[in-house]
Amino acid sequence: MKKSIYQVGAVVILSAFLAACNTDTDEPTTSNAANEEPAETEEVQNEEQPETTETNETDESDDASSDQQEEATETSSEETKAEQEDKADNTTLTYISNGQPFEEKVVTSTSDEMNYTIQHFENYTLTSEEPGVDSLLNNADEATSMQIEVVQKEDVTFDQLKESAKETISAIAPDSTKDLDLASTLEERKEISNIVGYEALLEDEKVVKVVIERENLFVTLTIYDNVQADLTDAFLQMGLTIQ
C-alpha cells in the first residue's frame, strides 16, 4: 500500500515536470516569431527606398536636360533670326556704269498691282503706272527709269514676248539697234531659264528691252537710259531679282 502511494506520487511529480518543460519550450518560439516578422518588413522597406530616390533623381535629370534643350533651341532660333535680319540689311548689288564697278545696298519692294517682289537700290522707287505695268524710278535722275511687266507662263510664251520686244526696238530706231550679249547672265544666275535683250540708240538716249524667263513667270523690262548716266546695267541687275 505504501509502495502504491509512492508510485502515484512519482507519476504526479513526473507529469507536473513534463508540463512545466512543455510550457518553457513553447513561449520562446512564439516570442521569436513575433520579433522576426517586423525585422523582415523593415529590410524590405529599406530596399525599396533607394529605388524611389533613384527614380526621383532620374526625373529631375530628365527635366533639367529638357530645359537645357529648349533653351538651346530658343537661342539657336534667335541667332538664326538675327543672322537673317542682318543679311537682309546688308544685301547689295553690283553693276557697271561708264566702265566702273559700283556696289550699293538694296531694299525689297512688293508690287501693288502684280504678284512679285524686287530688290532695288535705296534711292529708287517702285510705283504702279497702269494696269499690268509698274515703273522703277531713279529719284536722283527722272530721265532714267524702267518699266516692268510680269505675266504668268500660262498666259503667253517666251518666243511671243521675244518677238514683241524685238519689233518694239526696231520701230524706235530701225537703223541703230543691236542685240545684247547676256550669255554671262545665264551662267551666273541658274534661276534664269532664258534671257534676251535689244537696244535702240537715239543720239544720246537709249531704250533697252529685256525679256526674262523664270520658273513660274516671264518678265519684260523696258529701260530708259542715256549715255551720260549709263545705268542700263544697274536697272538690269535690279530687274533680275524680280520673282
Rank of each mutant, 00 (worst) to 15 (best):
T117N: 15
N35L: 06
T144A: 03
D89W: 01
E54P: 00
E122R: 11
N90H: 10
Q68M: 08
T30A: 05
N56F: 05
T94F: 09
K105F: 07
T30K: 08
P38A: 09
Q45M: 06
D63T: 05
E122L: 12
T29M: 08
L136Q: 12
Q49H: 08
E129A: 08
T29D: 07
E104D: 15
L137D: 11
I96V: 11
T55H: 09
T80R: 15
S135P: 02
S97H: 01
T144M: 02
Y124R: 00
E122N: 09
D62N: 13
T92P: 01
T117P: 03
D89I: 00
Y124E: 00
P38L: 15
Q69K: 13
A82V: 01
S66Y: 02
E54A: 11
T108F: 02
Q100I: 14
G132Q: 13
D112L: 14
Q49F: 12
E78L: 04
T110L: 12
E47H: 05
A64P: 00
P50Q: 05
A82S: 08
I96D: 06
S111A: 02
D86G: 14
N32C: 09
L136W: 07
E48N: 14
E83V: 03
A143N: 14
I96G: 03
D89S: 08
S135E: 07
I96Y: 08
E113P: 03
S128N: 07
Q84M: 03
D67S: 07
T127A: 02
A39T: 11
T30C: 04
T92A: 05
E37S: 05
E142I: 00
E122G: 04
T52F: 05
A140M: 03
P50V: 01
N32E: 13
A82P: 01
L136D: 09
T92H: 01
S76V: 02
N56G: 07
E51S: 10
E70W: 06
S77W: 04
K105P: 03
T117I: 11
E122K: 10
T125Q: 11
L136R: 12
E79G: 07
Q84D: 11
S135D: 09
E122T: 13
S65M: 14
A34Y: 07
T91H: 10
E71Y: 04
Q69M: 12
E85T: 07
